[in-house]
């Protein structure tokens, strides 16, 4: 199944500057809303939630790279994955900082108590910890050093995804307001299920 008209690495790399602009869209939007008085009466809450939502969107796009790449038969697309993953980490960091700064004025004991008392904060924290480790090992140097272990380490992203969906679900639980969570959760489950099914298929094939 080798096609001669497949995208080359250089062709995909040429898209990266454009992808960077797309990844920066939420920041541009926040600046625009801030300029035009559009951050609502509670800008602190708006930005906390918005950064969390965009971190999730970027994460789902990251997880979509492999299925899309396989479906289109364009392996070079995987070259866009790191930028999307780091974008998810970037917005997750802003989300975490807005919680730490605006909710707790960076007070460590308050933050720690919050993690212990509120399961949804605990799930978010676990996800952020995983994100941080994965972001720190996303460079060429770490990939070479970790060699074969790199792949299994970065499969922790699946655990982080589940933790984030739980984080979001529990946050909305108080008001039984699951509409948004269901949409994001369904996409996340579909992206994870695709991987499970593919694995089962591989196994069957190798047994046959």
């Amino acid at each position: 199944m080798i096609r001669s008209n497949r995208l080359s690495a250089n062709q995909v790399d040429a898209w990266k500057p454009w992808l960077l602009v797309v990844c920066g869209y939420p920041v541009i939007r926040w600046l625009y809303l801030g300029w035009t008085d559009g951050l609502t009466a509670n800008p602190v809450e708006f930005l906390t939630r918005s950064s969390g939502t965009w971190a999730l969107v970027a994460l789902l796009l990251t997880l979509a790279v492999t299925p899309v790449q396989v479906a289109l038969g364009e392996p070079a697309l995987v070259r866009l994955r790191r930028m999307l993953g780091l974008t998810a980490f970037f917005y997750a960091t802003l989300h975490m900082l807005s919680w730490a700064g605006w909710e707790h004025a960076f007070g460590l004991s308050g933050m720690w108590n919050d993690i212990l008392e509120r399961p949804f904060v605990a799930f978010g924290s676990v996800a952020f910890l995983i994100f941080t480790i994965l972001a720190a090992t996303s460079n060429q140097w770490a990939m070479k050093r970790l060699n074969k272990r790199w792949k299994s380490l970065h499969q922790w992203i699946y655990g982080a995804t589940l933790a984030i969906i739980l984080h979001y679900w529990l946050h909305k639980a108080g008001k039984n307001d699951y509409a948004d969570v269901m949409v994001y959760g369904a996409i996340a489950v579909a992206l994870l299920a695709w991987r499970v099914l593919r694995k089962i298929q591989y196994r069957r094939r190798s047994q046959a």
Binding site: A41, N42, E45, D114, R118, F120, A173, G174
Partner: peptide, 14 residues
């Protein structure tokens, strides 16, 4: 406290 958050502080809107 509310089961899912502290009620010790508040953000004054505006």
């Amino acid at each position: 406290r509310h089961p899912r958050w502290s009620q010790a502080t508040e953000r004054r809107i505006g």
